[in-house]
Nucleic acid binder design. Sequence first.
DNA 1: CGGTACTTTGACCAAATTCAATCACTGTGG
DNA 2: CCACAGTGATTGAATTTGGTCAAAGTACCG
Lengths: 226, 226
Amino acid sequence: MDSSFLLLPDAPAYARSRNPQFPANAADVSMHLRRYGARQRIFTAGDAARAIHEVAQGCVLVSRHLRDGRRQIIDIVGPGRLFGFALNHHSCTAEAIVASMVCSLDRDTAQASPAIAPRVHAAILRELDHMRDLAVILGRKSALERVATLLMALAGEETHRPVHLLLPISRTEMADYLGLTIETVSRSLSRMKQTGLISFRDAESIQVLNPDELRSIAQEALEDAA
Amino acid sequence: MDSSFLLLPDAPAYARSRNPQFPANAADVSMHLRRYGARQRIFTAGDAARAIHEVAQGCVLVSRHLRDGRRQIIDIVGPGRLFGFALNHHSCTAEAIVASMVCSLDRDTAQASPAIAPRVHAAILRELDHMRDLAVILGRKSALERVATLLMALAGEETHRPVHLLLPISRTEMADYLGLTIETVSRSLSRMKQTGLISFRDAESIQVLNPDELRSIAQEALEDAA
DNA sequence: CGGTACTTTGACCAAATTCAATCACTGTGG
DNA sequence: CCACAGTGATTGAATTTGGTCAAAGTACCG
């Protein structure tokens, strides 16, 4: 998690595994790798969308804001994932959640590259589907279901054995992602702890004891023909 | 709204104005125009995503379902707009809400066409942004704000004068789109009626009396650099 | 005219928010 | 090294919002 600088083609396994194809070749396009401190913004709502970005290291939070300060976190982006897709101007703000390395690539350059363009296209479609997941979470799930869904997303899809999670986000961020308040998130986690689904001593280090049960609470959407 | 069959290049003004570029030329690609009856499905979650679709006439509803039947409507697609973007398989179900004409185009063909591909790309990015709007609605807005947001979206962005809306959707569909129940939607509309923001005699024909006030209730997200 | 489907309204209830207090951990200065 | 702010998390009590259940109301259709 802390191998200081990394050039993207030499990204560590955990990054490559998430998105094995990007970037295909750092040499043939104009990209730059930049460090952002915690809470530092990568772009802000209203900015022209000139580049696409990849998290090389750390974690980036993409969010929208209402005038009165209410915030909806749209995406939590970990290493290997792309973000910052927009037609003309960003409607979201992206900020590093912890000190992070972000690789940015001119959008037109990316579009012109036959190696990269289709991969960006695929990433956009994945992002779109992810947003649909979020709509279901926010529109139709209870507080407990929302928190369970987030935990299972962080745990990864396929686990049946207990997993240990290091949460990249605070309770406030969980709440703003799940459309809840910190108190409700905290209560949901406490309830899960009490019923033996998870365990934790400190807030950011959670043991998922029963992934199958948690997944069933999470109410994954159905993907089958009915 | 009812000019029976139409070939897409001759789409009526209201369709062209929404998306003037698609399809560029019906002759040079393999597309077909098909009629769907009310409640008829265009595709179902789990289906392979082989085509992209455009509503030529009518209205299509894209939604996701949880196992227990809860539904989240993801998009309400009117004439001129594209839908059915997915990487491999659809995670959503699309159905005609009323008898509709839908123009479908093989995805690979569309990707291969230099005239069409960039327009599809733009439509996908618009869709993505629309989904982010929805996330804000569902995650951070009150019932009244949600209903106001929907009405203003249907009214169009720029209106200051009173507008007349013919709702393409029922209360149930409004509710499933806004993450509410029909009762709450109905109460919100009644409250708006009582406060003189809107008026209506029958459920699907609504007069927006005060667009500016309604817009301010809707709490549009901010798009400016802060 | 009667039936069905959809909407509205009301009364009550439950879930989540709000407000407030306490707790736990971190870092700072005496 | 320890006391003490300061921050974030948890827990509790009261309140609010929206959901549930039930009863009318309204329009449409045979």
